[in-house]
């Protein structure tokens, strides 16, 4: 029997498949450049960078597999696409569908607003983790061929779980803003701006001496403690999850209080 969650996933299947395959492809492609990097090309390229910049870009040891993947594939490309997926999905989940007029119909059925938000949040999380799982599979597929086997499967999995939570978190920000305002543009803009600020707080702020700022950034809890080297960072994952839960609760409360846009 279909419900709001399964229907949401089903309706977004093409977008999700596109995002997941695209992310995995880009990730696998860049990961398979690793053998060239390991042979020294990249070391030379970043030699001129200042130590601060290298640290910011997680490039201290670019030649190791974990160092390379942590700075390129999992440092920028994959989280960028995953966060875009999360924001796009979260924006559509409440505010987008509300502006399109779809929510009138759903909420005139025996579906509470709380249930709608939770099911949409659930669909976002499942979508994000599907994307992360496809990325993980792609990494495991190229792992041996690209000489990445210094990273264990568990370490890859740890990084991909963090990726799933990161995408879910930014999607949840869009859901929460959408649930509170009903405005698609506001949900999209605020979550995007927040995403950029958070990324900057994790990478740029330490360089300009604002070291503490990174602890406010989800990106820090996503990769700061290097899951590719250190495996599951349970505290970091817990912080990401707790943030999602708090935002989800805010979304439920605010969505229950207001008028639906007509």
């Amino acid at each position: 029997m279909p419900n709001v969650l399964t229907k949401t996933l089903w309706d977004s299947r093409r977008g999700l498949a596109g995002f997941a395959l695209g992310t995995a492809l880009v990730g696998a492609m860049y990961a398979s450049f690793y053998p060239q990097i390991a042979d020294g090309a990249m070391e030379q390229a970043v030699e001129g960078f200042s130590p601060a910049l290298r640290e910011a870009l997680n490039m201290e040891d670019i030649a190791s597999a974990a160092g390379y993947l942590g700075s390129s594939v999992f440092g920028i490309l994959v989280p960028l696409i995953a966060v875009i997926y999360g924001i796009a999905t979260g924006t559509r989940a409440i505010a987008g569908d509300e502006e399109a007029g779809y929510l009138d119909l759903l909420l005139s059925h025996p579906v509470s607003r709380t249930r709608l938000v939770l099911h949409r949040l659930g669909a976002l999380a499942i979508g994000s983790f599907t994307l992360a799982a496809v990325v993980l599979l792609a990494m495991l597929a190229v792992r041996t061929g690209a000489r990445l086997d210094t990273i264990t499967i568990a370490q890859f999995a740890a990084q991909c779980v963090a990726l799933g939570l990161l995408a879910t978190l930014f999607g949840t920000i869009a859901i929460t803003v959408g649930a509170a305002t009903g405005s698609r543009a506001t949900a999209l803009a605020s979550s995007t701006v927040l995403g950029v600020l958070c990324y900057a707080a994790d990478t740029v702020a330490p360089q300009i001496g604002a070291d503490g700022a990174r602890y406010l950034s989800p990106f820090h809890y996503y990769i700061g403690n290097q899951p590719l080297r250190n495996g599951f960072q349970w505290i970091d994952l817990g912080i990401l999850l707790a943030t999602i839960i708090v935002l989800g609760a805010l979304a439920v409360v605010s969505f229950n209080r207001r008028d639906l846009a007509s």
Binding site: G101, Y102, D104, L105, S108, P110, V111
Partner: peptide, 16 residues
């Protein structure tokens, strides 16, 4: 939720 079980609603601008 209970009431909506007993109601059929057609919106003025029905969209899906």
């Amino acid at each position: 939720v209970d009431l909506h079980r007993r109601i059929g609603y057609l919106a003025g601008d029905f969209v899906v």
